[in-house]
């Protein structure tokens, strides 16, 4: 009698603790599950100092040069948004484009409350929704936490593009497969910086191994108040923002 009771108690405890749900989920194992930072080895992250960005669009240029992103303006792996928040609460956002004629805005608009630039790129989520929805496993997460697209097996269904909350993906018009920022995987695996970080004139963009004890990246995380984009979606982005304004989505 006692045995049965304690068994039942244990059984319900497991149920309540969510163990049951996890067990059910384990019946359908998926290789494309979210990864956790490894104890050893690299786990890459990205930092953006919003206060330092001058909106020069060198990063967008460099990214297109480095990664065969279509030159025509529409598709980008990284972009920079300009926010203008007016005193009446109205917010205007615009994505700047490289080669935008540097229009002088000499008369400082008196209605501007605050204004700034925000660089955007793939957040390389630790819990990436794009990887979760890819039907064929063409989008996957590497051991060092970078989300890549296998263009040989991508069928171009664009489910990942729909699932990305950040608009970081597009369908490459030549290969007809999904494409996105790879943290310049070919560069970082040679110890180089991603092209956008390399050319950023003001160090608004920081890149590095989150597991490293001392690096520009870990210093960035130590010295700043950090926020991520759309944290409510539990995507656990690895693109960290310092001094991010609440208007940025």
């Amino acid at each position: 009698m006692n045995g049965r009771r304690s068994f039942l108690r244990g059984f319900f405890a497991v149920l309540l603790s969510g163990g049951a749900i996890e067990g059910v989920l384990k019946l359908f194992p998926s290789k494309a599950h979210a990864k956790e930072a490894p104890r050893t080895g690299a786990w890459y992250g990205y930092g953006v100092s919003v206060d330092k960005c001058i909106g020069c669009a060198r990063c967008m240029d460099a990214c297109k040069n480095e990664n065969n992103v279509p030159k025509e303006p529409f598709f980008v792996r990284t972009w920079v948004e300009r926010y203008i928040i007016r005193k009446n609460g109205q917010t205007t956002v615009k994505a700047i484009a490289p080669g935008d004629e540097a229009t002088p805005e000499t008369v400082s608009d008196k209605r501007i409350l605050r204004s700034f630039f925000v660089p955007k790129l793939c957040n390389q989520c630790a819990n990436p929704p794009c990887v979760q929805v890819c039907p064929v496993g063409a989008t996957f997460q590497t051991e060092d936490g970078v989300v890549l697209v296998n263009e040989k097996t991508c069928i171009g269904c664009r489910y990942c593009i729909q699932a990305c909350p950040y608009g970081a993906r597009y369908l490459h018009p030549v290969s007809h497969t999904a494409d996105k920022c790879t943290f310049c995987y070919h560069r970082i695996s040679q110890g180089k910086l991603p092209a956008c970080v390399e050319v950023c004139p003001t160090q608004a963009r920081v890149f590095g191994d989150l597991n490293a004890a001392a690096s520009p990246m870990s210093r960035f995380l130590r010295m700043n108040k950090i926020h991520t984009l759309k944290p409510g979606l539990n995507t656990e982005p690895k693109a960290y923002y310092a001094n991010l304004d609440g208007e940025v989505r």
């Binding site: 206060d51 330092k52 960005c53 001058i54 909106g55 020069c56 669009a57 060198r58 300009r82 926010y83 203008i84 540097a102 229009t103 002088p104 805005e105 000499t106 400082s108 608009d109 501007i112 204004s115 700034f116 630039f117 004139p201």
Partner: peptide, 12 residues
């Protein structure tokens, strides 16, 4: 040069 150095109220 003005790509970085033209006056723009959004710049820091």
């Amino acid at each position: 040069c003005p790509q970085c150095h033209a006056y723009n109220p959004s710049r820091p």
